[in-house]
Nucleic acid binder design. Structure first.
Length: 324
DNA sequence: TCGTGTCAAGATCTT
DNA sequence: AAGATCTTGACACGA
């Protein structure tokens, strides 16, 4: 069984490896001349795209096949201040260059619209803003020429006092999404409201892939066991390999926050149970120490019996019969 | 230059 | 009804 590893947005091993450069609304409002303001936004975007390309080159050189883009590539992308700005055209061939590089190196990329993107909000303006944010993400994926596979991770959203109603509203809004948005979406269990079981039921109903977050599952579950859920979760992935998120609690009192590194003990039980199904999958490491944490986890894993390295960020796990 | 409060966006709990 | 908190990393500003 093969497992590939990836990390989120920022590389700590790449000099100036943060693609999150931005500008505050207040600061941009101080630039009164509109051309100047847009040119400032454009310069920031170009730096972010350049940084992203440098990160991808580092990923390729380091055998990393999995990477999550920052959602902040385009500063103020969906803010009224930038309304009408064609940030795709404003970057010339940069989007396409990034996409070409990704294709050439067979990378799997994703993004995670942040927690303001809520498809189950009862407020029309919040829903509209969420659609605009999804549209932004899809536009940049399209501009890169990345195949329309599930690649945008979303949570189900708020509780709004009643889980069943909130889930029904999610479904209602989801099925009305334009196809080009809907087919890019995958759903993740969260650490407070929607458990892995909740999200699995939703994903099965909607034909949507489910990203299992094993840390969130530990924070938020109703006693379900992952060995029972995993085969069904894996079955929600038809076109691509299943993907899971891993992280460790920051400390004993702050269990939901992410730690600098990932403790192998938090991941090993899941890998053991996944070995029974013997299906390959990808692991996105969510840790403060980013790519350093990802490599550390790989190191810790390959030190275990029955695990061998098959790339700098890929491992091969022997199945129960000792093969592999 | 450095440290720290602030920051586009929502939801939820507390008062 | 209003305010605090959640959460994150970078900005922005003042010392």
């Amino acid at each position: 069984m093969r497992i590939r590893f990836g990390y989120v947005a920022i590389s700590l091993d790449v000099p100036e490896g943060t693609p999150n450069k931005t500008i505050s609304v207040k600061a941009s409002e101080k630039i009164t001349n509109k051309d100047d303001r847009m040119s400032r936004l454009r310069r920031i975007m170009l730096v972010n795209l350049e940084t992203t390309l440098r990160i991808l080159r580092y990923n390729a050189a380091s055998g990393i096949h999995l990477y999550r883009f920052t959602s902040k590539l385009v500063p103020l992308a969906t803010h009224p201040l930038a309304a009408g700005w064609d940030y795709i055209a404003a970057a010339g061939t940069k989007w396409r260059d990034i996409g070409d590089y990704i294709r050439k190196n067979s990378m799997r990329v994703s993004a995670h619209p942040d927690h303001f993107t809520l498809l189950n909000s009862p407020k029309p303006d919040v829903l509209a803003a969420s659609l605009a944010d999804l549209d932004y993400h899809v536009r940049i994926f399209e501009a890169m020429g990345i195949e329309a596979l599930p690649s945008l991770v979303l949570h189900v959203g708020g509780l709004y006092n009643d889980k069943l109603t909130a889930l029904a509203r999610f479904t209602e809004n989801f099925v009305q999404l334009p196809e080009r948005l809907r087919r890019r979406i995958m759903l993740e269990n969260d650490d407070k409201i929607y458990t892995a079981k909740d999200v699995l039921g939703l994903c099965e109903e909607l034909g949507c892939p489910m990203v299992l977050d094993i840390h969130h599952h530990r924070c938020n579950n109703a006693g379900e066991h992952l060995q029972d859920l995993w085969p069904r979760i894996a079955a929600t992935w038809s076109s691509v390999l299943p993907k899971i998120h891993v992280s460790s609690p920051k400390n004993q009192t702050d269990l939901r926050a992410h730690a600098d590194y990932v403790d192998l003990a938090d991941v090993r039980p899941f890998i053991n149970l996944a070995t029974k199904t013997n299906l390959d999958f990808d692991i996105m490491v969510e840790a403060k120490q980013k790519d350093k944490a990802m490599f550390q986890l790989v190191e810790d894993l390959v030190a275990e019996p029955g695990v061998r390295r098959s790339g700098q960020a890929t491992v091969e796990i022997a199945d129960l019969l000792g093969r592999g």
